[in-house]
Design a protein around this nucleic acid. Structure first.
Lengths: 213, 213
DNA sequence: AATTGTGAAACACTTCACAGCC
DNA sequence: GGCTGTGAAGTGTTTCACAATT
């Protein structure tokens, strides 16, 4: 089971398992079966077992999984066993909302540096983090060894920001701009394009036109 | 080629094609090949041809696709040939940012109703749309025949909101709350869970721990 | 008896490769 | 000659089904 290629889709399910497990931990649940996890997450029990097995066998046959051990393992796998610092580039509507949201949401991945090029915003704080000018970006990211960044700038500026981020050693980017970023293979990019989400959803609504083609 | 099952992943690529085509239209480009579309979108040319072919053959062999016709066809397919109204439930950080973003971003899918349960927000506007109390939700959505909704409320309230939306005839939901919604099969749900995006991205960063297990 | 871990089968999506058409 | 449209092959992911383990 080692040295097997782990699908990205499996990685994206791990945080869901983690959330449910943390809730169970709060309720002092000690053991959980894949069937019960399936009920709580909406994924199938086989899929859950397979996902977990990619990283080794840490359940007990006939019994189930230890909630506590599973939490620790998944945190390790996702590199969340210590606080992960993230830089946010772009303090517009989306960036600001995301920073505030992140403050409330959790502690394990934390926005600790915010950059913008609007001088009117300098010195202001979002979620207790000061907005810094873009000129400081390279210095701050290198100094603090930040590995992850969020791009929330307009489309026309996104590629240039990405290039800078790659140059200062960023390894993973969450990109909210509606652009395909060109990045070297060792950098992971996850795109969230809100327009695309809305537009593709419209497909699944019934058009109430009366005119057929 | 009719009556074939169209993969959801293909539907989600259509808005990307549409965006690029609209840009080409601005530049008065009249004909585009799948190879060129591939270059501009980052998808493969075969995939683009296959995606388009699901809906019928509207290219010309040896020539390419008419930009204008392709735009019209994709808009039709996605039900974007007339303005789509969307209801936003929850005017917190994320909801507000999304409404403002949507105002700037495009006109084809438009947030035209916003609901919240915070009385302090009533009467205020976001992006020229008045915030209404939750009590008005059913009435407004039915009256205007709105088919799509965005859920941007805290997790604990999300399922109840979803139930209400389903009851008043909503067919597609964009869910920002970190919850698996239980909805009947005819309702499409697209989840965007920002915590999950950040946490799964952390997997792809190099941990700089010195201690192995 | 219950539940994990896992090959094998099934399914879904992408890429290949080329016939068909302009 | 060039580019689309599409069966066939290939690849990736999920589900099945059951042996292994407690």
């Amino acid at each position: 089971m080692p040295n097997m290629k782990i699908p990205d889709v499996a990685i994206r399910r791990l945080p869901v398992y983690l959330r449910v497990l943390l809730e169970l931990g709060e309720k002092d649940e000690e053991i959980i079966s894949s069937a019960e996890l399936a009920r709580l997450t909406g994924f199938s029990s086989e899929q859950i077992r397979k996902d977990l097995a990619y990283f080794g066998a840490f359940g007990t046959r006939g019994v189930g999984y230890s909630v506590e051990i599973l939490i620790q393992r998944i945190k390790r796998i996702l590199n969340l066993h210590e606080v992960v610092e993230v830089a946010l580039v772009g303090a517009g509507n989306l960036g600001t909302a995301f920073a505030r949201y992140n403050l409330n949401a959790h502690q394990d991945v934390r926005i600790t540096a915010i950059f913008d090029n609007d001088w009117g915003k300098m010195g202001k704080n979002i979620a207790d983090v000061e907005i810094l000018p873009m000129d400081n970006l390279s210095g701050v990211i290198k100094e603090r060894g930040i590995k992850m960044a969020i791009i929330a700038v307009p489309a026309f500026a996104a590629q240039e920001v990405a290039n800078t981020l790659v140059n200062v050693g960023i390894e993973a980017i969450l990109n909210f701009s509606p652009t395909k970023l060109n990045t070297p293979g060792h950098v992971s990019v996850q795109n969230i394009d809100l327009s695309i989400e809305l537009q593709s959803l419209a497909y699944y609504t019934s058009s109430d036109d009366k005119d057929l083609e």
